[in-house]
Amino acid sequence: METEVIIETRNLTKTYRDFWGRQKVRALSALDLKIYRGEIFGLLGPNGSGKTTTTKLLLGLLFPSSGEALVFNNPADDVAKNERIGYLPEESYLYKFLNAEETLDFYGRLFRLPTNIRRQRVRDLIEMVGLGWAKRRQLKEYSKGMTRRIGLAQALINDPELIIMDEPTTGLDPIGCREMKDLILELKRQGKTILMCSHLLADVQDVCDRIGILYQGELKEMGRVSDLLQVRDVTDIQTTKLPPEAEAEIRKVVERFGGQVKSYGAPSASLEELFLKVVEEGKTHPGKRYQANDQADAPNSLDANQKKEG
């Protein structure tokens, strides 16, 4: 399919030199990368592998030592491209003396948004990230989660086509993490392209379409998640709850086809889902406490219905 290439790097290299011009660290070596419109691309790698360097090169915050970085088919240091992108850094690099409204207003002005649109967007975004109750407080009083949210809001102020996120879920609590992932999926649904760096593999797995893995500045693996993660020699079947007698039958069917049942039983829900359920109930029924009892089935066990909703 002929999808538009949003981001392209050709032989992109970045070497940090010390003051005397000697090479110190080769942060990125000959990176060749293409990112297409509408996909969520995850850049993985351990700490120090070059993920952040790549994003900085793409944003024009660094000059490449050799090679090229192109965004929307223009060099990365072209300021005009900034009209169409949003950047959510890992730390909040926002002015601490402004409050949420003023921050969004300031960045909105930089995009030369007409006043009414700008004001509307500011209101909507604050609502969306759930900071309506703290919008007049200066940013220096925000917690980490709050700063991440306002950071997200400023990244979206111009309704960008491309969003670059650096460690979007790192350091968030499970609820925040869930919300972030949902948002990322929503953005994809709106047709935006997203590049995210992370070392939290589970989160990347949940949202990304394609991934690339960096190690010591070199691209070691790249491809679609589903392709890469597919376990080829196992077939996964999920059914509604069956009576115990069905087990023997099913095993026989599988063996008839030359396979073998590797595991049979109720699957585990994810801890995340349990956590979210408990919190949700905490909101609706405040005052309810944990009580130890002898029942083998914990009262908060999840069944498939709840799992789907979670």
């Binding site: 024009g60 005009a80 900034n82 949003g86 690099y93």
Partner: peptide
């Protein structure tokens, strides 16, 4: 590093 955010705006 507030310049990062600033530099990524037009």
């Amino acid at each position: 590093k507030t310049i990062y955010t600033l530099a990524t705006k037009p």
